[in-house]
Nucleic acid binder design. Structure first.
Length: 567
RNA sequence: GGGCGCGUGGCCAAGCAUGGAUAUGGCAACAGCCUCCUAAGCUGUAGAUCAGGGGUUCAAAUCCCCUCGCGCCCGCCA
C-alpha cells in the first residue's frame, strides 16, 4: 500500500497518472520552456496572478536581456497556453480552462479525488489538547484541539500514518487538589464532573484563604513515590473529568487515539532510568539536579527531595512518542513556547534527536473582560458554545423552511462546523477575543456560507438529467463566462494550497481557501446557469460542479466541516 | 529588565516564509437584485499614512534596525 519513496516531492510523479500531477507539470513544463530562453529562470517567478491580469504570470525583472517576444512565442507553443501578453516586465499567460477541468475531472472519476497523492510511509504523531483534567474544556482550550485535529486530518489526507496523542497530567498540584477535594467534601458520593469541579474551586479558595497547601504537598509526595493505591484512586477521579473532556471533543468531531498518563513514567521507573542515563551531564545545586542549556540557563530535573519535575516526564513522553513515530508535532499554548524550545535542545544534545520535531503554538483566547479561568468560573465552556450555536442554527433553519424532522441534525452539523471554522480561520499565532455576536454570526466568512454553496452544488447535480457516464472526449468551448473560468482556475490551485498548508503546518490556510472557493462558486452560480442549457454547456458545467463538490468534500473532511445537502 | 509573538479601513481577518502590477475579503453602513438550479446568496457605493520612524532595493505590508502599544514567558509549577 505504501510506496517506498525517498523523495519529498509532494505529488507523485509517474507517467501512469498524468491526471494527478498536472498541477506541477504545468509549472515544470512552462519552467523548462522558459529556461530555453532564460537559462537561469527560477520557478518562483512563475506564479498564479492575484491581480486580475491573467491566469499565470512570468516575472522577468531579475533577468537581463530583452527577449520577451522570444519568450512569448516559445510559451505559445504549449497547447494549453491560450494567450501570452507582454506587459512591461511581466509576461501574462492565459491557460486553457478546459484543459484544467479535464485534468481535475479525470482525476476524480478515476481515483475519486483531486489531487491524488501518494501514500507516505512516515508515521507522524500529533499531540494536542493535553489539558489537565480538572474541569470541562472551554473555548480557550479548544482552539488547541481544533488546530491539532485539523493538522492530523490534513496529514492523513496527505498519506501520512498519523496517531493523535494526549498527555494526561495526573501528577501535579492541580490534579492532586481535584482528588483531595473529592475525598474531603464528597467522598461517599458518586463523582460527577460538576461535583468534582465544585470541590476543586472550593479547595482552591480554602488554600488561598488559609495560605496552607500542606495537605496537597503531602499527597504529591506520596504520588511521586509511586503509591499504587493512591495513583489508582486519583486516576479514577481524573478519569471522570477526562471522560467529560472526551465527550465534549467527540461532540465537535474530535477523537484522540492515544492517552498517556504522566504517572506511567513514574510507576514504570522510566524517569529514574532517564535521569541516570544523563548522569554525565547533570549538575547539582544542593540535592536538586539540573542540566545547563547552551545559553547557561538551568533546567531543573529533580527537586531537593529527589522527586522529578515536569520536564523529565515530558522528555520520557517524547522518547515514547519517538519510539513509534518518525515525525512529532505538538500543539501547545503559547505560554509553553519556552518549554518547547528547552525540550528540543535537550533532545538534540542529549538524546541525539535527528527526527523531525515541530511545535505549533496557539495564542490565547480571552473574553472582553479579560482572561478565562476554569477556577474562577468565568470561562465559556465548549458545551455552552455548542448549545447556543445549535439553538441559533436551529432558529434560522426553522425560519427558512419551517419545522422538519431533519432540522435537528442539520442544525447540529452547521453549529459544529461554524464553531470549528470560526476558531480555525484565525492564524494560531494571533490572540483572539471571544465574542458571542461573532461566534453566532452565520453570514460571510463562516462555515454556513461554505456549506450553503455546497448545498447549491448538490442541488444542481440532483436536478440535472444529464447522464455523466458517457463523457465527451472534448469539452465544449461555447460561452465560457469569466466566472466559470475563475472557478476552474481556483479549483485547480487546490493541491498547491494543500501542500503549502502541510509545509507550514497552517490548517487555517484551508479554511480561508474554502471560503474563497465558495465565494467563487457563488459568483459562478449567479452568472452561469447549469441545467437546461445547450447540452454541451450543461455537460461542461456539470463537470465543473462535480469537481467543486469533490474538492469541498475533501477540504471539509480536513477542517471538520460537516456538509449537508439541504439547509 | 530580558526573551518569544502580535499590530493591516469603524470592527474582525487574509497576504509576510520565497519583495514585484491599482493591499484581498468579511461584519457594520448606504443603494440595488428573487415569474430563473435554495436570497444563509449576488451586485454596487463609501471607508486604509499596512502602529510610527529609519535603512536595503529598480521595487517593501512583506527583508534589516530603532521606537511605541498589546499578549505570553522568564519557578526545585505543569
Amino acid at each position: 500500500m505504501y510506496s517506498q519513496t525517498t523523495t519529498k516531492n509532494v505529488f507523485r510523479h509517474s507517467n501512469d497518472y498524468d491526471h494527478m500531477l498536472m498541477y506541477q507539470n504545468i509549472h515544470e513544463k512552462l519552467t523548462s520552456t522558459i529556461r530555453k530562453v532564460i537559462p537561469e529562470f527560477k520557478e518562483e517567478d512563475l506564479s498564479f496572478d492575484k491581480t486580475g491580469h491573467c491566469d499565470l504570470t512570468v516575472r522577468t525583472f531579475r533577468y537581463k536581456g530583452d527577449n520577451m517576444e522570444q519568450l512569448k512565442s516559445a510559451l505559445l507553443e504549449e497547447s494549453f497556453v491560450k494567450s501570452a501578453v507582454v506587459e512591461g516586465k511581466y509576461l501574462n499567460l492565459s491557460i486553457d480552462s478546459n484543459f484544467l477541468l479535464s485534468i481535475m475531472h479525470s482525476s476524480i472519476s478515476t481515483t475519486g479525488q483531486y489531487p491524488d497523492v501518494f501514500q507516505d510511509p512516515e508515521r507522524v504523531s500529533v499531540e494536542h489538547t493535553s489539558i489537565n483534567p480538572t474541569g470541562p474544556i472551554h473555548v480557550g482550550r479548544v482552539r488547541n484541539s481544533i488546530i491539532g485535529d485539523s493538522i492530523s486530518r490534513l496529514l492523513k489526507r496527505f498519506g501520512y500514518r498519523v496517531t493523535t496523542q494526549y498527555f494526561v497530567n495526573d501528577s501535579g498540584k492541580q490534579m492532586m487538589s481535584l482528588y483531595l477535594a473529592y475525598e474531603k467534601y464528597n467522598a461517599n458520593k458518586q463523582p460527577t464532573p460538576e461535583l468534582l469541579l465544585d470541590g476543586y474551586r472550593r479547595i482552591y479558595r480554602e488554600m488561598e484563604s488559609s495560605g496552607s497547601e500542606a495537605e496537597v504537598e503531602e499527597m504529591i509526595k506520596k504520588y511521586e513515590e509511586g503509591d499504587p493505591v493512591l495513583i489508582n484512586k486519583v486516576r479514577k477521579i481524573a478519569g471522570v473529568m477526562l471522560d467529560d473532556i472526551k465527550n465534549d471533543l467527540k461532540a465537535i468531531g474530535i477523537k484522540i487515539d492515544d492517552f498517556t498518563w504522566e504517572s506511567d513514567f513514574i510507576v514504570s521507573g522510566e524517569v529514574k532510568t532517564l535521569i541516570s542515563s544523563l548522569s554525565d551531564s547533570i549538575k547539582s545545586e544542593g540535592e536538586a539536579k539540573y542540566l545547563e542549556l547552551n545559553d547557561g540557563r538551568k533546567v531543573f530535573l529533580t527537586r531537593s527531595d529527589g522527586s522529578t519535575l515536569y520536564v523529565v516526564r515530558d522528555i520520557a513522553y517524547h522518547m515514547y512518542k519517538l519510539s513509534q513515530s518518525d515525525w512529532l508535532i505538538t500543539v501547545l499554548g503559547e505560554d509553553h513556547s519556552e518549554h518547547g524550545k528547552t525540550l528540543t535542545e535537550i533532545l538534540k544534545t542529549h538524546f541525539d534527536l535527528i527526527k523531525r520535531l515541530d511545535f505549533v503554538f496557539n495564542a490565547f483566547v480571552s473574553l472582553e473582560t479579560g482572561s478565562m479561568s476554569t477556577r474562577k468560573g468565568n470561562a465559556v465552556t465548549l458545551k455552552e458554545l455548542i448549545e447556543k450555536t445549535y439553538e441559533k442554527s436551529r432558529e434560522i433553519i426553522v425560519e427558512k423552511r419551517g419545522e422538519k424532522d431533519s432540522n435537528d441534525e442539520i442544525a447540529r452539523k452547521i453549529a459544529i462546523s461554524a464553531i470549528r471554522f470560526n476558531i480555525l480561520k484565525v492564524s494560531a499565532s494571533k490572540a483572539m477575543i471571544f465574542r458571542w455576536e461573532d461566534a453566532l454570526d452565520f453570514n460571510g466568512d463562516s462555515a454556513p456560507f461554505v456549506i450553503y454553496s455546497y448545498v447549491r452544488a448538490s442541488n444542481i447535480i440532483k436536478k440535472s438529467e444529464m447522464n455523466m457516464d458517457n463523457e465527451t472526449s472534448s469539452i465544449s468551448d461555447k460561452e465560457l463566462a469569466r466566472e466559470e473560468r475563475t472557478l476552474v482556475l481556483n479549483m485547480y490551485t487546490y493541491p498547491f494550497i494543500l501542500s503549502e498548508a502541510v509545509k507550514n503546518l497552517k490548517p487555517e490556510a484551508l479554511a480561508n481557501y474554502a471560503f474563497m472557493l465558495s465565494k467563487t462558486f457563488n459568483d459562478f452560480y449567479e452568472k452561469c446557469k447549469v441545467n437546461d442549457q445547450d447540452s454541451e454547456i450543461t455537460i461542461r458545467r456539470l463537470m465543473t460542479v462535480t469537481v467543486y463538490k469533490s474538492i469541498m468534500e475533501d477540504i471539509s473532511s480536513i477542517i471538520g466541516i460537516q456538509l449537508v445537502t439541504e439547509m
